[in-house]
Design a protein around this nucleic acid. Structure first.
Lengths: 204, 204, 204, 204
DNA sequence: GACTAAGCGAGACGGTACGTCGCGTCTTAAA
DNA sequence: TTTAAGACGCGACGTACCGTCTCGCTTAGTC
């Protein structure tokens, strides 16, 4: 999925002249990207390699993605989106834990952890990718945290003035700190530890 | 400072024949590194550029540092070490805030933030650099957190069973989340927000 | 003018169904070609650039010309034809000089010199362009030399057995040698020098 | 042979620091160039192909030659130099014929004709190559013509005021006109035809 | 006081990948 | 069927740095 077209939620309605893009091309490119990431990780993810593996010209890739990082991000975002929606479990603590645990699992037990590591420098310093990640991942998570907190407040579990943005950072920051800097393992139980440390400050 | 810590800790005692290393060379290399980082950031920090700017041969650099990242880390660690030691302020909250604020300032108001961004991918994925960063930065901070918590327990402010490692992650994780992923500003007051969110869970 | 001479000679009489070719398109293409040649020379004469400048699709150009070189040749031939016909001046030497001088001026003082330089490799090695140039330029000149020599013979100035083809090569060869290889200037007086060197061998 | 280093006839005496160039590399590059030219001609002569065939990095080629054309020129010049020196044959006509015939043979019967065709556009329009060709080929030939004419004058065969530069152009111009534009064959007897056409104008 | 051994600047070298250019072919919709 | 638009595979470009490798020279201690 291109990180470029998604930004416009309103389906692009301009008349579109010239030969239309072959939708299969997109599939081949992302497939090759995933395959290379799985086989050999970010270091091996070069535009040249993706082109070769997808049986596609380099120019065709550059027409859709600005760089190998943009390509990896498309794959990463796709994966992360799937673990973010949390149903109403009737229990605020459990909901928070589940939200965090999903991320721990994706980053700790799939290739996405390695992808994230290989991507983070660009995510931090390239404005285009930075924006894409924020719009498609950070915002998503903050929204989910907001929903969980709202339900918690409605249940009378939580203080009504809890700061969503802050809670979101306190939840996810430690996870990334482990992934990127401390090297501590991303075990699922870490979700419980973090949530339990924060809840006292959030209780009604 | 070189990240080859062993060399420092046990002052190398083997007889060392041949021409000794010119101590000035080290200075020139790190000076050029800092200059390039200040002028143009991590992207421009190439071994070739450092060699040219320092008036030094590439081989001379490779004799001391494994890569441009190792070079940058040497500069980064040097800077971070200086803000970690926290004196006894008689107030646990203030001590925690000051500890975090130092990091916020170094990362938010000096070139170290950009350096960190440029380095983090390697820090996460290169075992050598990973280890160096953990030994020289993470461990240091955890130690300082431990000292602050101990004093807090001694004062009767904090629960005696507070988990140092976890607190350390909860403090610094959100800061790096901002620096690397969310793009939120590293304003000093963020230290207060984070500390205040955690303290309820730590009180005696 | 298209180099597809056949199309011109026998005015195409087949019924031609579908949308007819817009005659204006031809004009736009050649206009753009000339404009690009004048502005930036052969290096910049790409099919893509011509299409863009003419506001025409690449396919439309390929339907008429095989390549950028074919396009340039069309412009070149157009220009060269205009300077070849020499009237009877009553003086053989003057006629030869004028013939040569026309070429010197076209190649030395208009953009055609640069076009010729940019074209010559293809003219020498692409059979299609090679033939086109010979049919439309070389033959033309040889014919004009033949006419001048005939008049000279009729006047009793020249030997009746003068070799037209050879004289033609001796006249034009040095001009192209200057244009293409020696870099000497194409000054009009060069025509006199060449003619005067050859006439002793041609006199009756 | 590089077209770059030869210009300075005085053997380069500056101290030459750093690792010296491997002389074998030069040999490998030119060998590969010749092989490709022989096998497939100028169209196939790409820097990439030469690098592959010579087992050498592209950068190594670019360190010595500016382009594929420079490379081809080095080979061409090498070949042309060998046929230019004309011994005293005691007969001016025979000397001129032999001089021209050498060129006809090199251009007509070896791969150099094709190389010349593929090169001439660059020779005409790239100032660097233009200069190299003039310095190493045109000048050489003009010098040889001068020597032959001098001997002719000394023998009393030729007018003492014969214009060397002009004669040189009248001799070689027609040969290149055939090679590049008219497509007439470069048969050795053409040398006689040209010389015989010029001699009447040169006789004492 | 010559002999090693290492440090050092310089630059050659093989290599990987980059991002771009222009080619010539194709597929669409509109005219 | 022609046209404008643009997607596409392709080949090659020239460049940037990489990390390693010779060179010649310098600067020590050691024999």
């Amino acid at each position: 999925m291109s990180t470029e077209t998604d930004a416009q939620v309103v389906p692009d309605e301009r008349p579109r002249r010239g030969r239309p893009r072959d939708p299969d091309t997109e599939v081949k490119i992302l497939g090759a990207t995933r395959a290379i990431l799985a086989d050999s990780g970010m270091r091996a993810l070069t535009v040249e390699a993706v082109a070769a593996r997808a049986g596609v010209a380099k120019t065709t890739i550059y027409r859709r993605y600005r760089s190998r990082h943009d390509l990896a991000l498309a794959v990463l975002v796709d994966m992360i989106r799937t673990v973010t929606a949390i149903p109403d479990l009737g229990d605020t603590r459990r909901e928070l834990v589940q939200l965090l645990r999903g991320t721990l699992i994706v980053l700790g037990e799939t290739l996405m952890g390695r992808v994230m590591q290989g991507l983070v420098t660009e995510l931090a310093s390239d404005p285009y990718l930075s924006r894409a990640f924020r719009d498609q991942v950070v915002t998503l998570r903050r929204g989910e945290v907001a929903r969980v907190l709202e339900r918690g407040v409605a249940r009378g579990d939580l203080r009504p003035d809890a700061d969503v943005a802050l809670v979101h950072e306190l939840l996810f920051g430690p996870v990334y700190y482990r992934l990127l800097l401390s090297g501590e393992p991303l075990e699922p139980v870490f979700a419980d530890r973090v949530v339990d440390a924060l809840l006292p400050g959030l209780r009604a």
